[in-house]
Design a protein around this nucleic acid. Structure first.
Lengths: 224, 224
DNA sequence: TGGTTGTCGAGACTGCTAGTCTTGTCAAGC
DNA sequence: GCTTGACAAGACTAGCAGTCTCGACAACCA
């Protein structure tokens, strides 16, 4: 965002309420609320905040991202940030989900082993794309201190966990998993390894690892 | 620690350098250093700090423990804390390791499956003892922000990882694991699931889970 | 046109915390 | 008695989240 050019207010654009529902709920007390008066919300500022947050998340190498930095980078007052998001964590998560395609659907090749291999490999790969990785790491660190953000992140990851659980469930129905297999535990083995290695960085999260993990979950590691 | 009774200095006790090596290294420049003069270190204050830290860690329900609180609880000046430990994280970790018996040796029953079951069950159980659990959780949260503490924790957990790896290695030598089994990945599945569930608390870490996890690592989850 | 409402950028302000620095005290040894 | 270094107390700095205030200004209404 340039500092020489004054901010272009695009109030003539139609409102895009999908981003504002959390913040404007106190303004929507009932259906008989009087129509909006006053200056319209500046969509450009809104985008600039999300962009700045994502940019800083991606750049910061683990160092926490401050609200001051976001506001300054976006060329925006801090109050404008807090008008639309309840906390720093909410801004960060919104910035990240804004980028991520939220509709996760597991692959369905007809075989559990290949489905699982693909799912795990995709998960590992998506998280490590350079734009995302640093952002996700910073977000996880922030979530450790901010219970509100932790809760938001759990609903965010729940989508992916569900997709994996359904993939496993299909396999179990086909008899590829034991009838009493603990699907929740398998899900946690995948995401446990993922987060553990992702945050500590002591082991690889490459396609070969994904394949070994998927195979081990199905057939184990026993010798002949 | 009572505030009516003046602190009992026990300077006549021999120094116990195992706790002080980090802080006094600058005083041990060479073998020809002149002998110690000045007031002796107060061992009672040292213990009081560790006890206060452990007490606060155990009590705090996720809320961060402050240095001020530790010093006040111990009846000690903040500077006394920083004289002996380089950072807050170091105090917290020291307080926890002081309690934990560091010599971890995996069981050796002669069978991988039973060894692994026992190791996992013990790990789950030890971490969830009420005194330890809250402390460990708080410590992990602090480590998310404090790289120095994160490093200390990694060396702390390395002992346990090694014990598990050796347990697996013995099993592999007996042919109970495939010759090409990725031991490091198995270790990470155990500790990944552990930390994931321990920190998020969305699933159980009970003996039944330990048994299922251990079995799944050996023989997998495939149906008949 | 002028009044009301609500957003805007800017930045001062509060409250909290980690870590440093200062001060006056006191014990150990020379 | 002098030096050295630990001690408790607490002032102080710096960084950050979140709140509050201000003057400007845009949208809508009468």
């Amino acid at each position: 965002m340039s500092e020489t050019e004054p901010r272009a207010d695009r109030a003539e654009q139609p409102d895009r309420p999908e981003q504002a529902d959390r913040a404007t709920e106190q303004a929507e007390r009932g259906p008989s609320t009087r129509p909006h008066t006053g200056r319209r919300r500046n969509e450009a500022a809104h985008r600039a905040i999300l962009d700045a947050a994502l940019h800083l998340l991606a750049d910061s190498d683990g160092t926490p991202v401050t609200i001051d930095a976001i506001a300054r980078t976006a060329g925006v007052g801090k109050q404008t940030v807090y008008r639309w998001w309840p906390s720093k964590g909410a801004v960060l998560l919104d910035a990240l989900t804004d980028r991520a395609d939220q509709d996760v659907h597991g692959p369905d090749t007809g075989t559990l082993r290949t489905d699982l291999r693909a799912f795990v490999a995709t998960t590992f790969d998506a998280a490590q794309r350079s734009t995302t990785a640093s952002a996700l790491r910073t977000l996880a660190r922030e979530a450790a201190r901010d219970p509100h953000l932790a809760e938001l992140m759990q609903t965010f990851t729940a989508t992916r966990r569900t997709a994996l659980r359904e993939l496993l469930s299909r396999g179990r129905e086909r008899g590829e998993l034991a009838g009493n297999a603990d699907l929740e535990l398998i899900v946690d083995q995948v995401y446990g390894v993922f987060w553990y290695r992702f945050l500590l960085g002591h082991g690889p999260l490459d396609p070969a690892t994904a394949e070994r993990l998927a195979d081990s979950l199905v057939t184990g590691n026993a010798g002949d």
